[in-house]
């Protein structure tokens, strides 16, 4: 299922490069590869996803081979190798949350947004997907929205509707 998409050339801003350098400073000399996961988060927060070009640039920055970046980006579930909706609603689909209605909530999301899991709404605003236990099982159902990973607990159909309306409003105002 994995497919990596090409993108136009990306440029990292000086501010972003400063943050990269700050991350690298946390590890011993020569162990800069440790910065890979944190840096990929920073890139994704800026660009919304990780294009091949962006990953190649990260490899260049960390002085590692591009494949070392791709294999990491494709291993971890948080990295998007394709563009997503502006807001990605990630709802927990694991056992404990299902005991308190997570599956019904996923159905509700699908109905309300009108797209299947993983697809993007025609206006480009939303996509949604089920993710595994988010360590908030006592407050389920729960969902999170990147890149800040804002967290919503004890979801109901109403609270999900409100959230979607708020996000639409927010997008309009931007």
């Amino acid at each position: 299922m994995l497919s990596i998409q090409e993108n136009m050339t990306v440029e990292f801003t000086p501010a972003l490069l400063d943050r990269f350098a700050d991350v690298v400073s946390r590890y011993p000399e020569g162990k800069q590869k440790s910065a890979l996961l944190p840096i990929l988060h920073l890139v994704q927060a800026d660009f919304g996803w990780l294009s091949v070009d962006a990953m190649d640039k990260v490899a260049l920055f960390l002085q590692i081979k591009p494949i070392e970046v791709y294999e990491v980006a494709s291993f971890y579930s948080m990295y998007f190798l394709q563009p997503k909706g502006k807001y990605v609603l990630e709802i927990c689909r694991t056992g404990p949350c299902c005991l308190v209605g997570a599956e019904r909530m996923m159905q509700h999301l699908e109905n309300r947004l009108g797209v299947k899991e993983g697809e993007v709404t025609p206006d480009g605003l939303f996509s949604w997907r089920g993710v595994e236990c988010l360590a908030a099982c006592g407050f389920g159902p729960v969902l999170q929205i990147g890149p800040e990973y804002t967290f919503y607990e004890n979801l109901t159909a109403d609270s999900v509707d409100h959230l979607i309306d708020d996000l639409k409003q927010k997008a309009k105002n931007q």
Binding site: H41, M78, Y79, E132
Partner: peptide, 9 residues
């Protein structure tokens, strides 16, 4: 230092 993971149990 804090190190973030990437989403993997």
């Amino acid at each position: 230092y804090v190190q973030p993971g990437g989403g993997a149990y």
